[in-house]
Design a protein around this nucleic acid. Structure first.
Length: 383
DNA sequence: TGATCTTTGCTCCAATTTGC
DNA sequence: GCAAATTGGAGCAAAGATCA
């Protein structure tokens, strides 16, 4: 197969797969079977839905109809996820964005730099000051405006948000931002948005002032119980993707992030790249546990960052540079990669020989001293 | 004049299958 | 797990308008 073996380095492990973007595969997918393309009574109801003043009642009605819809679809052999929950794909995307934002900000920070001026990871929670009177969609529009303010006026570049329901049924939002902004500013901006739908009026009539405490801002140093957070990345990922028992479903989009955050990726090492063999050595060292082994995909679970930072300094430095590069902190370097030919019309063999995922022989440390041939080749000076 | 709001056009999400 | 494919529609970004 002319697709390079690739390692993707994540905080909690390393995935191994073949980059099939190098192949031009003929696919015969059938889109008529897609769940979202099926004409069902529930889909028609959702299209015509107009929110009433008692939104929480609407949610219960829609949830009841969705449950019926799930039963009908289940009889057709289609299993739908519960209304208002993240699918596995969504969890995966959300996790990727959170991990990469935190890594980008942490690795890009200069020592002793002022956290108030540079990038700094903060976690913000936005709530409503009184009972929710409007649809989730309307409240989410306020949140969009609030984030827009943060981007345009306060220079927020990377953000990710997640909508959840509180026990009282009100929607609230968790946001991960890359910028320190004073908590009074957050409160001022969010309350200003809430004022548009009259939430400050109803709060004032009850409490006599128009400055409800609707925001909670914290850094990622201590958790809700005041305990020190050892691993901010896994803490945030758990927080953002957790399943909420006994809460009403959120209607519509459940999470979102900035375009810049969407572009962030994990560091990857392909066959032909100088540090590829270092990753192979790490895999062979058995410091990570292989938890999945498919024909074309494997996953090695464990504290990959801890192992790499202590035992594989060169790789660690390259990962940090990768994030700095993504963040625009450093200039791109010359890419030294073996060429793979992207095939135009890939036709599988009659009796395909499935390549086994075999880890290369355990190299000695001498083998890690790689010989890359003529140095001129890697600096593009070869004529 | 800078900040914020509105409009508009278009990007991309969610869903799932398929092949590697 | 990744990439590509397809669809309707949600929601985003950009640009211009308006506000203070």
């Amino acid at each position: 197969m002319n697709a390079p073996c690739t390692f993707s380095i994540k905080n909690g492990g390393i995935s191994q797969y073949f980059d099939v973007s190098y192949l031009d595969i003929v696919r015969n997918g059938d889109t008529s079977v897609l769940k979202q393309n099926q004409k069902t009574p529930f889909n028609q109801i959702i299209k015509k839905y107009e929110p009433t003043p008692n939104f929480l009642n609407d949610v219960n009605r829609i949830k009841f109809k969705h449950d019926l819809h799930r039963q009908i679809m289940s009889k057709r052999g289609k299993n739908l996820k519960e209304l208002g929950t993240l699918s596995n794909n969504q969890k995966k995307s959300c996790k990727k964005v959170c991990e990469n934002i935190i890594n980008t900000v942490i690795f890009s920070r200069e020592r002793n730099s002022d956290y108030k001026t540079g990038q700094y990871v903060v976690f913000v929670t936005l709530t409503l000051p009184s009972k929710q009177q409007h649809s989730d969609k309307q409240i989410k529009r306020l949140q969009t405006r609030y984030i827009e303010n943060l981007q345009k006026t306060y220079g927020v570049k990377y953000y990710v948000w997640k909508a959840e329901a509180q026990k009282n049924g009100n929607i609230h939002f968790h946001l991960l931002l890359d910028k320190w902004i004073h908590h009074t500013v957050h409160r001022k901006l969010w309350n200003k948005q809430l004022d548009k739908l009259g939430y400050l009026d109803s709060f004032q009539s009850k409490h006599g002032h128009r400055n409800p405490n609707t925001t909670d801002v914290k850094s990622l140093k201590k958790d809700d119980k005041g305990r020190k957070i050892k691993n901010p990345t896994s803490y945030i990922v758990k927080y953002m993707t957790k399943f909420e028992f006994g809460k009403r479903p959120i209607l519509g989009k459940l999470w979102g992030c900035s375009d810049e955050a969407k572009q962030l990726d994990y560091p990857k090492y392909q066959e032909g790249q100088p540090l590829f063999d270092h990753v192979v050595h790490l895999i062979n060292s058995k410091k990570l546990k292989q938890v999945l082994k498919e024909d074309f995909f494997s996953f090695f679970s464990g504290r990959s960052y801890e192992v790499i930072s202590t035992k594989y300094k060169k790789l660690w430095s390259d990962i940090k540079d990768f994030y700095k590069l993504q963040n625009g902190n450093i200039e791109p370097r010359t890419i030294s990669q073996k060429e793979f030919i992207r095939l135009k019309n890939y036709i599988p063999e009659q009796t395909p020989t499935i390549p086994k995922i075999e880890i290369l022989q355990q190299p000695t440390f001498e083998q890690v001293k790689l010989n890359y041939g003529n140095p001129a080749f890697w600096t593009n000076n070869l004529k």
